[in-house]
């Protein structure tokens, strides 16, 4: 039976755990190109909604494909108008 320690060691770590560590302030020795790159702050990455797993990454892409267009919006609005008995109340 694996020990508690082994169970933790073998557990897959999420991207955010990896980034939290590999972008740690610990820049031991500066490379020529490290400047702004490894200096990426996780707080800054927060703003771009970082993904914690491949699944969420895929979901995010799918969501982007479904951006609302004005045609879709009009279509959905007409459906709501019909359903509420206000057909033709607003123009497209």
């Amino acid at each position: 039976m694996p020990t508690v320690r082994e169970t933790i060691q073998d557990k897959e770590v999420g991207l955010i755990d990896v980034l939290d560590v590999i972008l740690d302030k610990g820049v031991a020795i500066r490379g020529d190109l490290i400047i702004s790159i490894a200096g990426v702050d996780l707080v800054y990455l927060d703003l771009r909604v970082l993904i914690s797993s491949v699944e969420t990454l895929i979901q995010a892409y799918e969501k982007n494909d479904r951006e609302i267009t004005s045609e879709q919006f009009d279509q959905e609005r007409r459906a709501i108008e019909d359903a509420t008995g206000n057909s033709g109340k607003w123009r497209d």
């Binding site: 972008l23 610990g26 820049v27 031991a28 020795i29 490379g31 020529d32 190109l33 490290i34 790159i37």
Partner: peptide, 11 residues
Amino acid sequence: VVPLSFCTIYN
């Protein structure tokens, strides 16, 4: 090992 931050690159 002394690990380096992600993307430490020398010219």
